[in-house]
Amino acid sequence: MSVPVHIHNISKSYEKVEALKDINLEIKAGELFGFIGPDGAGKTSLFRILTGLILPRSGTASVGGLDVVNDFKKIRQITGYMPGRFSLYHDLTVAENLDFYASIFKTSLKENYDLIKDIYIQIEPFRKRKAGDLSGGMKQKLALSCALIHRPELLILDEPTTGVDAVSRKEFWELLNKMQQSGITILVSTPYMDEAALCNRVALMQNGKLLATDTPKNITKRYQGQIFALHTNKMHSLVIDLENTAAAAQVYRFGDSVHITSTSGNDESFRQIITASLEEKGHSAIQMIAQQAVIEDCFLALMDKNQTL
């Protein structure tokens, strides 16, 4: 039912920009694999190579043993692809869109109803509404149904949760988990770091390079140093005031706090050095709470390293 994906030394460049630099990846059959990275990291280019929409400059890739350059027609039969932009017909209704996509894959809604039942139930009340008038979350659910309607073995989703509210995002991921259980290999890209934890394995990408590939747990485990979340009475100048402190390896805003990393190994003395230097600069009510690293911390650390290389 599900297929593995192999990517060997894939590179791609547009005129002057190098979109992908020597990417190597092995994705197992039935895996829910996440590509995490900011805009321009190369996620869309990689997906388009896998669906045969663009050609790599060098390297090879295969889906279930089929080459993406030579056998792209066969790959398209077994792949469900949901492009980054909403790519359904705005002027057709929900039902018409579904029927259309079913018929171009020579199948029908009835035939594969069991697969998309969970999603379809959510959009069914709107089946007479035009796709252009749906909310962002509903649009994505409809697009997912259309991508799934021919029972693909590989599902490729390009930023399916971008521009979707938090509740719909959560629902969307629950649906993906269900899809995975029915035996489909799923590749999904997202700029949201918090979604990484929901994948089996993730690849962190930046500027066309893979920074790391592993399970979300292993990636956070590999984080070196101890992170502290800082709160003081003068949050706005906190980052600037800390940047001149030699002891801190990394300082950056994280939500409503500031994350600071110690690499010294001696957390207590680090805590004292930071508190003292901040008090000198007029901060008070200083709180430093030790934190577990999350994907975003790892990504920022890896990004830093990548840029200095």
């Binding site: 045969g52 027609k73 398209r76 692809y81 790519s87 996509y101 171009i104 259309c146």
Partner: peptide
């Protein structure tokens, strides 16, 4: 322009 061509191309049509 709408991006639907991308979806059509990826179909077996």
């Amino acid at each position: 322009e709408m991006g639907t061509m991308e979806a059509l191309l990826v179909s077996p049509l």
